[in-house]
Every structure is written in C-alpha cells, then in structure tokens.
Design a protein around this nucleic acid. Sequence first.
DNA 1: TATGCACGCTTGATAAATTTAGCAAAGCGG
DNA 2: CCGCTTTGCTAAATTTATCAAGCGTGCATA
Lengths: 127, 127
Amino acid sequence: MSEEEVAKERAEALGAYLKSQRLGASLTLRDVEEATEKSVSNAYLSQLENGKIHKPSPNVLHALSMVYQIPYAKLMERAGYVSPAATRKDSEKHGQAATFAIENLSKEEESELLKFLSYVRSKKGKP
Amino acid sequence: MSEEEVAKERAEALGAYLKSQRLGASLTLRDVEEATEKSVSNAYLSQLENGKIHKPSPNVLHALSMVYQIPYAKLMERAGYVSPAATRKDSEKHGQAATFAIENLSKEEESELLKFLSYVRSKKGKP
DNA sequence: TATGCACGCTTGATAAATTTAGCAAAGCGG
DNA sequence: CCGCTTTGCTAAATTTATCAAGCGTGCATA
C-alpha cells in the first residue's frame, strides 16, 4: 500500500522536476528526443513528466542528465535508486573486484588451481 | 545488429562473472535467494548467470553486490549502465597471482575450471 | 534398489517500461 | 477562413524483467 503510494509520489515529483528543467531550458518534448539522439522518445518523456513512469531506467536518466546538465546521481536518487552511489568505502581492501574468492584456499590448493588455469588457458589463448 | 550482439555478450560476461562470484563463495542459487531475503529468486538468478537477462534492474545488482561484497558501481558498469563518473582505474593493480579474470574464459573452459574448483573444495571442506 | 532431497534449469504468466502511430488543440502565414 | 505545422498527449503494441511452479538429475541414506 505505502509502497505504491510512495512510488507514485516519487514518480510525480521526478516528473515535475524534469518538466521544470525542460521548460527552463525552453525545449520541446521533441527537442529533447532529438537531443538524446532518439534514445528517449517524446511520448515516453511525456509520460515520465506526468508521473506515469514509476521506475525509469538509469540509461534514460543519464541521457536526460546530459541534456539538462544536471548531475546524474541526483536524478538517480530522485528516481528512488540506491542513493549514496558508488564511490565510497569500496576502495582500500585488496582488489577483490574482478577476482575469484580464492582466499579461502590453502597455498597448495591455490597453486594447483592456478596451474590448472594456465593449462586451460594454453589450450585456447583467447585474450 | 551490433547492439543486440553487444548486449548479449555483455549479459553473458556479467552472468559468468556473477556465477564465478557465487561459486567462489560456495553458495547455491537458493542460498543467494535466501541471502537477499527473496529479493532475487533462484530462478531469476539462474537466467541471469546464463546470460539470458540483458538488463537486470539496479535493485537486483545492488542486492547481489551486497551478498558478494563487490562494489555496486562495478556491477552497474558491467551490466551496461552508464559508467558512474568516477571510473577508478585501479584495474591493473592486482599483480597478485591469486586474482584472475574468469570472464575471459570460454564456456567450456569455465565449466572445466569450476568443476576443478569444486573438486578442490570438496577435498578441503568449507570453513 | 528405492526414496527423498537439494540443486540447477526451463517454462509460462504477469507487470512494468518503452515504442509506434496518431489525435486534438493552438499558432501562423496566406 | 484555410491549410500547414507544432506541441503535448495517449491508446495500443512490443519488449523486458521478474516470479512461481515444476521438471530432471545426481547423491545420499535407509
């Protein structure tokens, strides 16, 4: 119940904000459609501004943030996506990013795995 | 033509990456479903890992980033969403041998590796 | 051998996003 | 007035994400 209501209010608020930005820039719906290289249709933008879209995709928000020159993160927040975006305590730590959670293996097991990996890689060699 | 292709490849790469993370953590599909408090179903996760989902919602990506303890922004990027400004190039920092990119492997190579991993794991017993 | 169960996977349905096509009102020059 | 264009909008169609339920297989244990 509250979820729908909240989402609706958010959508309306976002829409109003977006509309104010567009009008502030003296642009027409089709102008914006054009400015985003068709990545956002004028029809969709209309629905968006009128609060009929509860969860616009980040791609759309990004395109609009470019056109209106407003921070992407701000739109993301207003749209209800996780706010305190990316950069924060993600750093430090070791590079766990593109890596396997290999830390649970013993030294021997690890080297075994790595050896196996290189073997597997040698069979193909697709960088 | 290329758009679809690219999206497909991205989806597959993301899926492989996600799968490697899950297996690396020795978790089952249902484990993850549980870990996210049902916010991601095991069925959906399966499709996601097999590259059948082209554009998973940020919500899902966020939930998974929590479970696997990997930066949200990274997943967003891999999923094909506009790169969050930062663009931290910590990339080649991992000279660590124990860290490697599993997403460069072919399907067969990957499954071989994973099989080997589970074998290694079985010998050890999960902490 | 049978039985149960956990696992990964596929299928079918549903809801929401996004596009396409087109309408009605308003403006404007002839 | 009259045609032409622009603008905002919307109904219908298409696409996509997501879920719930069920299937098949391997693996254990009785």
